[in-house]
Design a protein around this nucleic acid. Sequence first.
DNA 1: ATGGTAGCATCGCTA
Length: 258
Amino acid sequence: MRVVTWNVNSLRARLERVEAWLVEVEPDVVLLQETKLADDAFPSLTFEALGYASAHYGQGQWNGVAILSKVGLDHVVTNFAGGVEPDPDARIITATCGGLRVSSVYVPNGRSLDHDHYRYKLEWLDRLRAHLEADTHPDRPVLVGGDYNIAPDDRDVVDIAELAGATHVSEPERSRLAALHDWGLVDLFRHHHPDAERVFSWWDYRNGDFHKGRGMRIDLLLATPSVAGTSQWCLIDRNARKGKQPSDHAPVLAELSV
DNA sequence: ATGGTAGCATCGCTA
């Protein structure tokens, strides 16, 4: 099973590129973030024509997450699972696809360490763990993919010294990611590339950062040990960040044996 | 020199 996560930064603006990429790569399960669409504007027929069932959880203008699947799409949960304080934003959707419990997540950016949005980000990550405990179990095949807005390791940024006092690399954010690891989630890219340095999934549109090789690895596929241990590869398609009207994020793909 | 670009419901916010 081929799975991908991709923050498309507006599905309306990106639909042609997304369609062409799906035809070329033929993933079985697709996790999208930042669709920036209301549910009634989601192009489900376009994806159906490509062989995908889909589920979208949007709010229009900002946020919005979706799951596309060629291998079944059941037991959809929008927002956090029951019993967890709901998020006012559309940032998480969960479904079962071909025996795999998958979530598409768009973790809040945080803006700055002294901003309310940063505290919201930390609380959101606490609630993501509570969601997993309510929704499933680490002994099962589970994959939580998305834009985490956290670089897990100093090797996942250009130069950690430049980022002192910045979001995405702070200890409280990384400790939330470690809590997800403690629950049982493995970073598939790091699992397959333990020595990789400065391999990124996001580059700011400004300053020619992509061409200068200045980005961060913040888009992650996290999976339980049974999934990670049998996965065949994981890569980032940086070619999808090139050319006309790209998203500022590249897709992150993995081949699973689920 | 605190800049720059892209997307959105565009004169202001979000990333």
